[in-house]
Amino acid sequence: MNSLKEAINLIEGGVPKAADVCGVSVRAVYKWLDRNRLPRTEYTGETSYAKKLEAASNGAVSAKNLLELTKTPTEAA
């Protein structure tokens, strides 16, 4: 898995399902895909979308790997 898009595609139902399980709009998920990253709130602990996506994928997507894949250099520091 090299991108957020690949991870979302591992979820049965794709973007609409990801939006539903995370409680956000489909448009919000498309914004994540455009940026290839989850929102800032995921890295500050305000949300837990990575864990929700992991559950929705039945473990095909690891929350830890998803966060590593999508963080910016600032968040890596």
Score class of each variant (00 low, 15 high):
15 V>F: 11
40 R>S: 10
16 P>H: 02
53 L>K: 00
77 A>V: 13
17 K>L: 05
49 Y>E: 01
70 T>C: 13
21 V>F: 00
50 A>L: 09
72 T>L: 14
29 V>Y: 05
56 A>I: 03
44 T>E: 15
71 K>D: 07
21 V>K: 09
11 I>T: 06
52 K>P: 08
14 G>L: 04
66 L>G: 01
56 A>G: 00
61 V>A: 01
24 V>E: 05
40 R>C: 07
45 G>F: 10
46 E>S: 09
60 A>L: 15
22 C>Q: 04
36 N>Y: 12
49 Y>H: 14
1 M>C: 06
21 V>I: 13
38 L>T: 04
25 S>K: 08
6 E>F: 03
32 W>F: 07
50 A>C: 02
65 N>R: 12
56 A>L: 07
31 K>P: 01
52 K>G: 05
15 V>R: 03
77 A>T: 10
15 V>W: 02
25 S>H: 09
17 K>I: 02
30 Y>E: 11
38 L>D: 03
11 I>N: 09
1 M>L: 14
73 P>S: 12
4 L>P: 01
57 S>N: 06
56 A>S: 06
72 T>E: 12
20 D>P: 06
16 P>N: 10
10 L>M: 15
26 V>H: 05
1 M>Y: 08
48 S>Y: 11
20 D>F: 12
68 E>P: 00
63 A>C: 06
38 L>G: 06
21 V>N: 03
40 R>N: 13
52 K>H: 11
3 S>V: 04
43 Y>L: 08
34 D>I: 04
60 A>N: 13
44 T>K: 11
45 G>V: 11
11 I>E: 05
26 V>A: 07
10 L>P: 02
73 P>F: 07
22 C>L: 02
7 A>E: 15
59 G>D: 12
25 S>E: 04
67 L>A: 04
39 P>S: 01
26 V>F: 04
44 T>Q: 12
39 P>D: 07
51 K>Y: 04
43 Y>W: 13
31 K>W: 10
44 T>A: 08
20 D>M: 14
14 G>K: 11
77 A>W: 13
47 T>E: 08
25 S>L: 04
37 R>P: 00
25 S>N: 08
3 S>M: 07
15 V>C: 05
52 K>F: 06
55 A>E: 15
34 D>P: 06
65 N>L: 10
51 K>I: 09
66 L>I: 12
59 G>I: 11
62 S>I: 10
30 Y>K: 13
35 R>S: 13
3 S>I: 03
18 A>V: 10
6 E>A: 15
27 R>L: 07
41 T>H: 09
27 R>G: 02
60 A>S: 14
75 E>Y: 09
58 N>R: 10
24 V>F: 06
69 L>R: 00
23 G>E: 00
25 S>D: 11
23 G>D: 00
63 A>H: 00
29 V>S: 04
6 E>D: 15
60 A>M: 11
71 K>G: 03
7 A>G: 05
10 L>Q: 15
2 N>P: 03
4 L>W: 08
29 V>F: 05
